[in-house]
Design a binder for these strands. Structure first.
Lengths: 339, 339
DNA sequence: TTGAAAGCGTTACCAG
DNA sequence: CTGGTAACGCTTTCAA
């Protein structure tokens, strides 16, 4: 067997020479095997193996004007829920021969625009974004590019193109409905003051809407003076809650991290959960439950969003029409022991 | 201002026409601005902006034979520790104009080989892998490709090229040393029977080596009949431990998930931690601690591995030499209340 | 300082 | 079934 030297990139021409055919025939043997005589094909396949030949998709892409590349831009991978989306996406796309180009914007719209620009330079066949907040320049770039775009984790009013997500508003309302169904009547919402926390904002609106619908008194809202609420904010949240709305019997937290903190704070202070105070969260973060924090929460599958976004994109890339531009993957209310 | 039509991809030629220069001059204005007359340059820059022109890096790459692409193949992103590595990598590489091509092998060497083959077809300038276990064909492909390769999370004896990781053996030994330093003398190791769990195996060897060094009696090893030990294996592990080595005073678990399970099992059975049994883990998984499981553990920074791998790769891509092919990022022992 | 021509490695298209 | 030729959109090289 011939040994390919280190660093020696083989070209189609080399394979052709070795198989005693023209370069064009090699190309055909690789792309449309049944249009090549079996014997010829066999020789070519052998030559490919002997030389460890790997076709140059860059050159191929230039010729076909299709890169078989999909750019995926997420805010961060640290959040395992986005990681799941990316993983689902890569899997679905890989099966159809698409590769994923990854970018992390770090929650900055400006960075996202830069990443979009950089990605577009690679001539991807499609693009996937998280969220529906983009700079005007980014929107224009995407429009001009003419490739299918999927926005994820949100149900935009004016989607750029396609979208796969769920309704934070509906989910917020549904959770309140569930809590109410358990008999609680003085339900508070614990959120943050972050200006651009649209998701939290929508959840809160869902809370208000359902409260109004159920006719369960005025909203009891607690707004923590932090940008991102987490497990460490539990004690402060509990203090504030008991101070401002002492008769509250259930707290719906804008994220599970906060709910976890609240529950831990309750344990420390001897506040019975859910006896004295029921606690619900949002997000179903991975380890809270196994770690013994049995939080009633709203769950959305990141993997499902990724898978669906991939499928939608593939449909488009095949040239088929997509019936609904905006797809709602829904959510589940997970009832555990905290409420 | 001219409006670029949707789907109208602009070429350099279009920009050139608009600026009244040759295409070559546009190329120069973009890549080596100071080799173009200021006036000309200004007209070109204007034309670029007006047309929303984004250079085609695919075509450029074909011409220069440099793709400015780095392929990253991880086993999974679900594990947030790898996600951090990928995020660090993308950040470091992006700053130098490199994009990241992502693949998830799902812990299969065969899939990894496929992904490597697919990635190589994109002619990346570099490649990053997790682990040091690859099929022979994969190794050959990588050798032939002639591009720099970084293996991460491991310190391979025979690296393909470069490597960034830490020593599981050393870390295992260090943890035993720490536990011993706290006064415990009957230290057990709780691991799995998985054939290919090399990391766990190395940790166990570290455990044995340190035990021998300290002269602290014969090893007390518990091997769970599972492939991946997790939080649900706690009760079984505790039973087995108390049955086989009833006088054990400290348990070093091969992963934090298992340690968490063990601690929860202890709580349920009224076994005092660390009074009756100290428990230590490995990995410092994100939520155990905030969730109230205060596990003494070994911590390795995924972000640091990613950052360093990126830096190493960039050095190589710049054509500079790298002094040490294998880089050890080390680990930290985090002492918390469980031991 | 600018431009023309010749690739880069592949595929589309048309002949044979 | 097979092969030649012309793109693909850029950069390299050489001339002006």
């Amino acid at each position: 067997m011939a040994t390919a030297l280190s660093g020696t990139r083989q070209r189609m021409e080399d394979v052709a020479r070795r198989a005693g055919v023209s370069q064009m025939t090699v190309s055909r043997a690789l792309r449309t095997p049944d249009k090549v005589a079996p014997g010829t094909r066999a020789r070519i396949v052998a030559a490919v193996a002997e030389l460890d030949y790997v076709p140059d998709l860059v050159a191929g892409g230039l010729a076909t004007k299709r890169s078989r590349l999909v750019a995926v831009i997420v805010s961060t991978l640290e959040n395992s829920i986005f990681a799941a989306t990316v993983e689902g996406l890569t899997r679905v796309l890989r099966d159809e021969g698409y590769a994923v180009l990854l970018g992390a914007s770090g929650y900055s719209r400006g960075t996202e625009e830069e990443l979009i620009r950089a990605a577009l330079g690679r001539r991807p066949d499609g693009l996937v974004l998280t969220g529906d907040l983009h700079t005007p320049a980014a929107r224009r770039l995407l429009q001009v590019s003419g490739i299918p775009v999927v926005e994820t984790w949100e149900l935009p009013e004016a989607p750029l193109d396609l979208a796969v997500g769920f309704s934070n508003h509906q989910a917020g309302a549904a959770m309140v409905h569930t809590i109410h169904g358990c008999g609680y009547r003085r339900i508070a919402f614990v959120g943050t003051a972050a200006e651009d926390d649209r998701r939290g904002h929508l959840r809160r609106e869902g809370y208000r809407a359902m409260l109004a619908e159920l006719g369960t008194g005025p909203p009891r809202e607690l707004t923590l003076p932090v940008t991102v609420a987490g497990i460490t904010d539990g004690p402060v949240a509990l203090d504030a809650l008991l101070a401002t709305h002492p008769d509250t019997d259930a707290a719906f937290c804008v994220v599970d991290g906060l709910a976890a903190g609240l529950i831990l704070a309750c344990r420390r202070r001897g506040v019975d959960v859910p006896g004295r105070l029921a606690v619900a969260g949002f997000g179903d973060f991975d380890l809270a439950q196994p770690a013994g924090l049995d939080i009633t929460t709203v769950r959305v599958s990141g993997l499902e969003i990724g898978n669906f976004a991939g499928t939608l994109l593939l449909t488009r890339l095949r040239g088929e029409r997509v019936a609904n531009a905006v797809h709602d993957v829904g959510f589940s209310i997970i009832r555990r022991s905290s409420a």
